[in-house]
Nucleic acid binder design. Sequence first.
RNA 1: GGGCGAGUAGCUCAAUUGGAUAGAGCACCGGCCUUCUAAGCCGGGGGUUUCGGGUUCAAGCCCCGACUCGCCUACCA
Length: 662
Amino acid sequence: MYLELQKRLGERIRSILAEKYNLQLENIPLEIPPDLKFGELSTPIAFELARKLRKAPKIIAQELVAALTGPDGVPGFAGFEVAGAGYINARLDRVAGAHRTAGASDVPPASGLHVLVEHTSINPNKAAHVGHLRNAILGDTFVRMLRAAGQKVDVQNYIDNTGVQVADVVVGFQHLEGLSLKDVRQLLADLQTKGQRIDFYCWDLYARTSQWYEQGSEEENAARKKLRYATLHELERGGNETSEVAELISTAVLRRHLETMLRLDIEYDFLPRESEILHLKFWEAAFEQLKKTGVLYFENEGKNKGCWVMTRPGAEVTAGDLDEDAKVIVRSNGTVTYVGKDIAYHLWKFGLLGKDFGYKPFFTYPDHECWISTEHGEEKHPQFGGAQAIYNVIDARQSDPQANVIQALRGMGHTDQADRYTHFSYEMVALTPRCAVELGYNVSEEDLSRPYIEVSGRKGFGVKADDLIDKLIVATRAEVDARQTGRDETERQRIAEQIAIGALRYFMLKFTRNSVIAFDFKDALSFEGETGPYIQYAVVRARNIFRKAGTTPDAVLAEFAKLEGVGTYLEGEAAEDIWALWLRAARRTMVLEQSITTSEPAYLAKHAFQLAQEFNNFYHRHHILTEEDPAKKTFLLATAAVALQELVLALSWLGIESPEAM
RNA sequence: GGGCGAGUAGCUCAAUUGGAUAGAGCACCGGCCUUCUAAGCCGGGGGUUUCGGGUUCAAGCCCCGACUCGCCUACCA
């Protein structure tokens, strides 16, 4: 409702400005005033025009208000006034607004583009940790938001199965543990029967291997490093025992990652793997294009002599001068860097490479299949790639390489694609020193004085995702057991899981993207105040009202549509808090649009929380079931119905379920 | 050295991207369960938005300078 009225008012002011002052303005700033006493929408446009029109803001505002209040006014608005030194405040027709909010919803703002979102992308050599959770939850929430806005979205999870990280655990299996391919296969089967997690196993082995590289004498360490790179090259080449071990391990760990994410209701459509990017020669195709377009050039001198390099974004280089700072894409030994492979992959994403993956089914969800890349795939498969817009959910530390890929696309003349390439960047999740100590890690004196400590998979330092989820469920289960004595075991467990996931997802979403999360169990395990459970609790309370009243939100809203004299409940001093709740609910599409254009799910999370807050306030102030005036009771029920609807919807966009009870 | 981000209440974070009286949660103090569930509600204290200049009708936000912190910046991947 709000968004529609905002657009309508903007249009109207624009046309008045064109007519009256012959001014063409792109955007009319319209905002929601800090207090309802200033109306429901306002604009400071008069201040902006004061200089241009050489008139006092107040005069301009008065003229605009006169034009707006004209013979027919503006549909949906009750009036306009000048306030302060020149604000124009608009007041809504509350009755019409309420009916609009209770009835049909706004048309979501879809761009109609085919969008590809990539998130999670955990190296398949260890368990997922809290940092990966932030990535996946941000990405999944953004996908839900895009889909809610009517967008067609493919979800990808990129798997670097031939990188040095996987090589390191393979070194661990083969050389630290002395396991053969057969042994590894047996180990996987044993873990399976014992119900143990292979990703947890690898977590420790990876940390041990990383240490091992530095533990020996100088000669030993050199030999170990050599072993590391020999292993890496075997992986890249493929078709040998070492690469088979890697394939086994990385696939098993990947499955575990998908299972972990499924606990949070996070699903994927396609898993492109680096092994196919290598074996299907994506890079070779990209290399030709990069040379042809002059994005890459061969360096004949300086420290990068013998390499194919690329000018960095924003670098000012005069032609012919030596650019020592250039980014190396192909090393002097002929091997390609990670950025090079990434450029090839992104050309594929936009359908510009002229090559495609093979596809085979990999993981089955209740309502769809997740596919994985392979060299020779199935004949019949869905289409991936060839997107018009992409979002890469990758932490802020990778903004440099991401900028390089965009720069390459731009340099190749794919400017539209470069413009629709969004690095959905976010800050890392770190641990508070207290949390690190709590987990039993050795924390240096220096680290103890810092506000947070970066997690490190290499050191095995961090909080594993499954451990955190387990811990959350234990905590919520204790609460549910105490409160829901009448419910059976399975039901209580189900509710506990819903609340635990709600707490976790909200926790990861309530921070804006560029704030570092200093993780602490105390905060993450909190279910009070600004948390997911707080919002879920508001939903449960609203549902209880309808259950006890023996009616449904839909029935109430149908009755409300016919109700006369709604104005008496919406106008006046006493009605302000109720009207504020209706207005908050009416902001849904506005918030969705804002969250999408800014790539900031935190806005939506905040919105859901504020809505819950206002509902709780309303809940305490107005006792519905004991209301004696039937018309007022219908109105109050309708208020609860609207709040309930909006809360459930907003939560679903955040990937948070609304429990039946808690 | 260069690039990016950050510095706001005791703590953790917001602030509709330049708008009206800088807001939430936690913590602390005080009230409210015979009511539609207290995972809740109400009230209270707590701020020179790191510092110094500038731009303008208007600055937490933009510009300049200083200070502090984090990340990135290899022919490793």
